[in-house]
Design a binder for these strands. Structure first.
Lengths: 200, 200
DNA sequence: GGGTGCATGTAATGGGTTACATGATTCT
DNA sequence: AGAATCATGTAACCCATTACATGCACCC
């Protein structure tokens, strides 16, 4: 086969770097990490235990994080990990390299693209569900922004956090607008096909 | 471990359905499919040969598509696939089920979230590169919309295609706006930290 | 007694990209 | 001569989610 080789250089995934980032906020256990993710970067990042635990193991072996086992009464022991100097360095290096986005698979658009192969109402339902989800998300983002400004005032991390929230707000707002316009368009198509049927 | 089970029901991936959709536009070979993808749904969907060929095989076995081998002079034989009635039915069924989106991993936002762990200029470069890419994408979308309207006027698929282009335009426009705002914000942070350094 | 939360990890499974294998023709 | 295009397929590999295995404490 030919080349097809514009040097993608994927260079592995960002999982370990995400872990380092989380540990830069506070030392924590693998179990805790899942909860922290849900409450912080969960809207644009996810990690499962099947990723977190092996990542922590590897990072420990590489000397980027340190493990301290805390014995607890009643509950199982926790392995609390914290960043080492090397880990902080690696995190910084990773942050200096601009992210290259890959084309995400968008099933909504795929279905819409082939929309003429099914009923117009099918497309409408699809878009309606999408708009509803975006509207919910927008409310959530507004809540997060308010809460962060109130509870984290003065934190040097705050402006960066707010930028990610703002991303969601711009994104969500635009897509709600698109969705409503698209629904109008679909209504038009539905009327046209109804008229055609009536004429026969 | 507890439940953690809200019934995700992923039910497999959309690859075979995407293939059916493409064949609904015209019969074609696996090789051709890659090219058609690049020229149509490539901005929000991708498939590699390693996916396409096995999918076609499975769909043939299931009776959703039909294979006809065309002998060519000079060039290797091509296996041209076309939809069967069953395949058209399956495509339609899939289109009737609204898409459930998964949280995509956004490396840009991840880096921005941890932006305080590196230089402000690192975040700036990241966002600048992002904005530049979105601007390019917007120009591409505008070109596609114009071309489609000119060359596909009257095609019943056209309105659906334009809806997907419009998605990209709304999306891209919003994110350029976000990016520029964010860059201003980052400039502010840079000035503040410079002032602080100067005071010492 | 049964579910839930805390807590750690491994194994199985699935999905996807990339690389490999093959080979004729055409363009530079 | 070397590279690209046409063309099909398989195999190796990577990443990620889910399921499994284990076990104590607490609450209803």
């Amino acid at each position: 086969m030919a080349k097809e080789n514009v040097s993608k250089s994927k260079g592995g995934t960002a999982t370990p770097d995400a872990v380092l980032g989380l540990l830069s906020m506070a030392p924590m256990s693998g179990y805790e990490m899942r909860r922290v993710i849900a409450q912080s970067i969960g809207h644009f990042w996810s990690e499962s235990f099947g990723q977190i635990y092996p990542a922590l193991k590897r990072l420990t072996a590489e000397g980027c994080v340190e493990k301290k086992t805390e014995r607890q009464k009643g509950r199982p022991d926790r392995n609390v990990y914290s960043l080492t100097a090397k880990g902080r360095e690696r995190l910084q290096e990773w942050l200096e390299v601009p992210a290259v986005p890959e084309v995400p698979r968008n099933e909504l658009l795929l279905k819409l693209f082939f929309g003429s192969r099914a009923s117009v109402s099918a497309s409408k339902e699809n878009v309606e569900a999408f708009v509803a989800r975006q509207k919910v998300a927008l409310k959530v983002y507004a809540g997060i922004a308010k809460e962060l400004k109130r509870e984290r005032a003065g934190d040097p991390q705050l402006p960066f956090w707010l930028m990610t929230v703002s991303y969601g707000q711009h994104y969500g707002g635009a897509l709600v607008k698109w969705g409503l316009e698209t629904l109008k368009e679909l209504d038009g198509l539905e009327r046209v096909s109804a008229t055609k049927r009536a004429k026969r």
